[in-house]
């Protein structure tokens, strides 16, 4: 299964690059996994990208899962009340 690990932060500072990375990854297969363990920082721009890629995958009929959410990602999803909407299994990790 193709898997992408986001190595950097997901913020306005690199949102433009990350958008391209994510969309390219979307073409890698039909069953995809994005590892968020290393996302140390995420803001609204980053959250928008997560929403976008999830939506885009659904449009294309692909299965895309976020895994290994970092604490920063979990905090943002919690705040935006989207944990449930994303439907991914969230594993609470010590951080």
């Amino acid at each position: 299964m193709p898997s992408l690990t986001i190595k950097d932060e997901l913020t306005i500072y690199n949102a433009a690059e990350q958008k391209i990375n994510l969309l390219v990854f979307l073409t890698a297969g039909d069953d995809l996994e994005i590892n968020l363990a290393n996302v140390t920082e995420i803001d609204t721009a980053g959250l928008q990208l997560l929403i976008l890629i999830k939506r885009e995958a659904a449009h294309l009929g692909k299965n895309l899962r976020f895994v290994m959410h970092s604490k920063a990602v979990l905090d943002v999803l919690e705040l935006a009340n989207l944990t449930g909407a994303f439907g991914d299994q969230v594993v609470l990790t010590q951080n």
């Binding site: 949102a15 433009a16 609204t44 959250l47 928008q48």
Partner: peptide, 8 residues
């Protein structure tokens, strides 16, 4: 979608 635009 412009990644630097706020939509939410």
């Amino acid at each position: 979608m412009d990644p630097e635009t706020s939509y939410l």
